[in-house]
Design a protein around this nucleic acid. Sequence first.
DNA 1: GCATATTTGTCCGTATGTATA
DNA 2: CTATACATACGGACAAATATG
Lengths: 213, 213
Amino acid sequence: MTESATTLADTLREQIIAGGFAPGTRLSEAALAARLGVSRNTLREAFRVLAQHRLVEHVPNRGVSVVSPTTADVVDIYRARRLIECGVLRSASPLHPAVAAMRLALERAEAAVEADDWAAVGTANMGFHRALIALSDSPRLERAHGQLAAELRLAFLAIDDPESLHRPFVLRNRAVLDALTGEGPDAAADALERYLVDSERLVLGAYSRMGRS
Amino acid sequence: MTESATTLADTLREQIIAGGFAPGTRLSEAALAARLGVSRNTLREAFRVLAQHRLVEHVPNRGVSVVSPTTADVVDIYRARRLIECGVLRSASPLHPAVAAMRLALERAEAAVEADDWAAVGTANMGFHRALIALSDSPRLERAHGQLAAELRLAFLAIDDPESLHRPFVLRNRAVLDALTGEGPDAAADALERYLVDSERLVLGAYSRMGRS
DNA sequence: GCATATTTGTCCGTATGTATA
DNA sequence: CTATACATACGGACAAATATG
């Protein structure tokens, strides 16, 4: 039972990203510790990790709750994504092994579209962009991007209309990959930039229709 | 005395970055907790935060120690810095208020050179690059860059030759700023790219002379 | 506005497993 | 191989802050 705090943080992260706790939910220490069979102290250590990952918010004397990204958060997340993802792509080699991982994720997404499984489309799309970052061979960039992706996932959960969020972008990912192998990194980066601008617009539109702050 | 874990993490971070604990030092939780006047549980929560910031390393059943970046870490840190800093600069406006902060940091560095205060030169140089990232108006990019800077600081501490590390780059920062206000963002980004390549080479050279892994 | 109940923040004592001398 | 030291995790306790009636 060593290192249970880290393991606990991992399982909690998966649960949150999978939608097990709705954005905004307060997570009571005593209740969760009892439900998970761990002590409050161990749970609090896990909370610190998740708070650093920006998955939960820690308000002094009022405990932690699952974050619910604001429009300002969404704007910032996409700004950072554009800079990192397009930057990686622009200086990437079309011969990099990660290109195969991108293709695999894309095929998974296309299969999930056929099966009308929009949640699977969302995770496959995320996998495409994770593979894209792997083109950089930089663990730190992958870590930074992973945090952005996790936060964005919470925004998607708050919207809760996976088809309109994910379906249009399978084709766009295909275009990015084709541009990378066909026309080269710069064309691919331009396509990705347009992709991210449109995706941000979609999310913000859904937010404004929900009357979110 | 609420929220002492976060405060504790902040003070520990400052102590580590200031060189209060040499890279590689093992931090015994019992001893440190006694010295700082906090309980082990509180200290452990602070450790989790610092581990996420990559300032300390958490080895299961062997406690935490101050990290000592390897050559691979240094290469990765500079790769990430080039992508983020140059990307920010390339799409920055020379009229952004952060330019004034860059100028201020630069003047502080130049004054510290006159005073032969190399530690101050180092912090002022860091401040220049922090202000540079502020050009992006992105809290998340600032956070990501701050983590890279803190890690790099540990590498500088391990080398412990602040004059040769920091002195040459005051002039280079001046060149970056002048290029930004004079020739525009693209020229500034090119100058910054050359800066970072040379800085990485200097650090790696010092590492190889130390016989580091 | 006040009193009560709940929850968090912190600390202590202790048991267990792991690594090291 | 034994013994020691230490990290890890648990449970209980209490003060402080917050929320609720």
